[in-house]
Design a protein around this nucleic acid. Structure first.
Lengths: 255, 255
DNA sequence: CGTTATTTGTGCGTATGTATT
DNA sequence: AAATACATACGCACAAATAAC
């Protein structure tokens, strides 16, 4: 087992400030501690304090004004865009059908994107279907139109939390999301999902799952979910049928 | 006129590296220059070089491996577009080349999406190119790699505000965004941009503009900008070359 | 009005640790 | 084992923006 390295000082400070902000310690127009105050309080160098602030600015938690100070971003209104809640609510009117139950894999690419220091990940493959009006459904046949196939990769400790969930075994049908299944078990809540969206041809698995030709142009969405400590929790790679699905986001002005 | 402040050294370096990456100077497994090499080449301190790399990591352009080096992110040119500010800052490192100057059109579909009660809109078509290093550039020839073609539709009152802007006449080359040109003239600032992202085949215009085959699968992004009064201001329909471009957004938890 | 103190922004130098080759 | 390359952390100096006097 690799020796547990202590967290860097700037990350500890960042986390601490984040918690204070979340606790409402710095409402509306209240200035956060200045750099020099934090230097004095924690015995750190100014550069270290600055690094913590820099990260908080990057994640949108605070903004800084030269000569004036640092302020928490008003959390009340949606800051940037369609939120993570939107992703979770996907389950409301779609059905998830597991093609390949959660199992241990060796996958260098996925492991490195999850920032693991080894090659083992836990993987589950499923497709999602638009719900149809019940009624025209024959017994033993899953109802609905498949529009996306997703491969989810989890680090081992995370996978252990849902290892016995019946929703993630081959053939299971439910109206969940993986992240929705995970969240209640996590110590740190999910805070971020970084997405990359591009076009990619359907491979054999994707084509079979959604019923299109192999090589058909698909909307590929990669999502990396991270918790409040910025630790990767889940990597999801989805192939959407563009004929059945359009990705929508609304950006809002930050300041 | 305010005195022009020079850009910080780390931003200049960041921009330069970004351009080199876009120009394909560091394909697949090729390591970027090390910190010490850049220190020597540009006469900067290591901290300054690190700051540039830190920003490139944050925007997803490169990743770094301790003990090994810094590498450009795979094929595509990544750009974080998680806020309206990000959309506007597209102009920082890309060039806009007008193919079809701003002119009056009858377009029922565009007019209805702009919530107009008639069919007249004002339309401008342009493509955008990754900036490249100057030098290998012949006179009269635009330098760079085209990666997107955009059709912008404006309501008549909005079009009037920029009707005489030389940046929107056929053949004009600049480093603006349409929304950036518009904003200073608007009574209400832009507050929202609703986006739909899907896959669509390149039509004749798009194929010619970015140099791909007609029918080539493209990433299609429709954006509807609205002001604080929720009035539509601009409709932009873009076709991105997926080989040159990946759309990135980061979702955050609302509260 | 300018002056001064405060606060953040930029930039440099150095030292030490850790991962990779 | 040694060299290379990135990560963390400390220190200092000066510039620019802001606010209070």
């Amino acid at each position: 087992m690799p020796a547990m390295r202590p967290e860097p000082a700037y990350q500890i400070l960042r986390q601490r400030l984040r918690e204070e902000i979340a606790a409402g310690t710095y409402p509306d127009g209240v200035r956060l501690p200045t750099e020099s105050e934090l230097v004095a309080e924690y015995g750190l160098s100014r550069q270290t304090v600055r690094r913590a602030f820099q990260d908080l600015v990057a994640e949108g938690a605070v903004y800084r004004v030269p000569g004036r100070g640092t302020y928490a971003r008003d959390n009340a209104y949606l800051r940037q865009l369609g939120s993570i809640e939107d992703l979770m609510s996907l389950s409301e009117d779609t059905t998830m059908e597991v093609l390949q139950g959660l199992s241990r894999r060796v996958d260098v690419a996925a492991a490195s994107r999850l920032r693991l220091d080894h090659d083992v990940v836990y993987t589950v493959v499923f497709r999602r279907l638009h719900d149809r009006r019940a009624g025209a459904q024959r017994p033993g046949e899953t109802d609905g139109v498949p529009f996306v196939v997703t491969t989810v990769h989890l680090p081992e400790p995370v996978a252990r939390l849902v290892g016995d969930a019946p929703e993630l075994t081959t053939g299971a049908v439910s109206t969940n999301t993986v992240i929705g299944l995970l969240e209640p078990h996590l110590n740190q809540p999910i805070a971020q999902a970084a997405q990359s969206i591009t076009v990619a041809p359907a491979d054999g698995v994707a084509a079979g799952a959604v019923g299109c030709d192999q090589g058909h142009p698909m909307l590929r969405v990669d999502r990396l979910y991270s918790d409040t400590a910025a630790a990767p929790v889940e990597l999801a790679v989805s192939y959407f049928l563009p004929e059945q699905y359009t990705y929508r986001v609304t950006l809002r002005r930050s300041g």
